[in-house]
Write a protein that binds this DNA or RNA. Structure first.
Lengths: 264, 264
DNA sequence: CATATTCGAGTACGTCGTACGCGAACTCTA
DNA sequence: TAGAGTTCGCGTACGACGTACTCGAATATG
């Protein structure tokens, strides 16, 4: 028998890779690489040239090895991606809540930290979570972020839901923002150029009375602030609405017995 | 000169396709297909076998034509996708607000309608918007949904932001839900099987004290309700929080002069 | 030194989007 | 009616992609 050769879809094998739990027998030729290096190279490529150009061949080139060599360290691209996710999740750091600034401040912090993470590694946005890779990075991040809403009177399920809500929002908002930018570059047109190219064509076909609201709001929304700041304002608006919504839920609950938290 | 041959990235050409604004010269061989049929076939394929199996070859097979024939009707796959998006956007219908149920009811309606749309066409979740295809379907949908928050005292920019917030939430939540399901099927393991496979391995490496909160909440959150209902509760929680957040913003504003709206 | 085991990686297969070019079908003009 | 001009259908081909298979090279143990 040679390899245990559990397929790419085996969660147990993936866990071994995530936690670097593997016992080499000592026999045979020594590996010339470590999983670590493969993951680093992959992240480097994805960061530099975008997620579309993340291919096994490119990663192998980056490392100066043959393409198939990667498969000695990783069962396939999907799992490699999972490991990359776990790896960069370990980048996030939260200060301990010095001075008891309150849960709202902490949750806002979570939002901003994650937004920065997504901007640093846009390829995080290309695949959704759904059964997250339970490696050290992801778990540490989850733990740290849960503590933002710990002890404010929420049940465990509600804590998870609230955090999921904030993280999901940041993901979606950041993704939209970056996708917008990407299309601008792909078309080679700024937003203004895009609009002024389209406007005359639209004029010819669009029923401006039937869709009066869309026309009014659409033009206002895209011209009120200019370009990028638009998206920035939208991000802030959405985030504050979500925090408001969580706040009214928290305050609507009975006085929480455990560890009251100074919120405003 | 043969084709005007504007590349796949030309927004003006895309608009022509979206609105079916094209003047055939009448010369030359008659086309054996209409754009309509190409789009329908593509949607059919994507709905049936998932977005990953949406390829030009499959669409062509579905229509019984050669692959390259499609390129007579569509400049490339990306634009075809845009047209598909516009097409299914035309599916949504909203009742006129009979009885003045209020903006909150209407916005909730928007959320549920969009969730249903995403579940009917999961491939909508694979590409993000970012410069949406401004076809008749998308514009009609945008207009109808803006009317849910029209006349309640928001500025145009705020109306757009509020709608974007709700739509983004539904997108992200639905995507997570479906991705979770997909992974279950890919692994061939139910959630319980997945957990019970992982638990012993995790036990060996996980520092349960350092990550006490994650362990507690993680297990509670995934076992409190069973499986699918979990996600259902999370969806509802998030949606209500967002609506609460918008509500507190609306109520916090000065009495709106134009067309007061019965809320609650 | 023989044997067992592990690693590196070349080759190859099936998929994808799509550029190019040519024959067939069609309308118009002379 | 003959030709010219135009448009459509689509076969062929190229360069990517993920990865299964296979085999020689390297290394440890007996």
């Amino acid at each position: 028998m040679t390899d245990a050769s559990t397929g790419p879809g085996d969660p147990a094998r993936t866990l071994e890779l995530l936690w670097d739990t593997r016992e080499r027998s000592g026999l045979g030729r020594k590996p010339g690489l470590r999983l670590d290096q493969v993951v680093s190279a992959a992240i480097e490529v994805a960061d530099a040239d975008g997620p579309d150009s993340l291919s096994m061949r490119r990663v192998a080139d980056q490392l100066g090895v043959g393409t198939m060599t990667l498969y000695r360290y990783v069962p396939g691209k999907a799992v490699l991606f999972d490991i990359m996710v776990d790896r960069v999740s370990a980048e996030v750091r939260y200060d301990v809540d010095s001075g008891g600034a309150g849960w709202r401040f902490r949750l806002e912090q979570v939002a901003r930290v994650n937004r920065a993470l997504f901007e640093r590694h846009p390829w995080l946005l290309t695949h959704l979570p759904g059964r997250p890779p339970l490696g050290p990075g992801v778990i540490a991040k989850y733990d740290a972020e849960l503590r933002a809403v710990e002890g404010i009177g929420l049940t465990d399920v509600e804590m998870d839901s609230a955090l999921t809500l904030v993280l999901g929002y940041v993901r979606d908002a950041t993704a939209s923002l970056l996708e917008w930018k990407k299309r601008s570059e792909a078309d080679g047109q700024s937003d203004n150029e895009w609009w002024s190219t389209l406007a005359p064509h639209l004029d010819r076909v669009l029923d401006r009375e039937r869709y009066a609201v869309a026309v009014r709001v659409g033009t206002t929304a895209t011209t009120h602030y200019d370009g990028v700041h638009d998206a920035e304002h939208a991000f802030e608006f959405g985030l504050q609405r979500i925090l408001d919504g969580i706040a009214s839920f928290v305050h609507g609950k009975k006085p929480h017995s455990v560890r009251p938290d100074p919120d405003r």
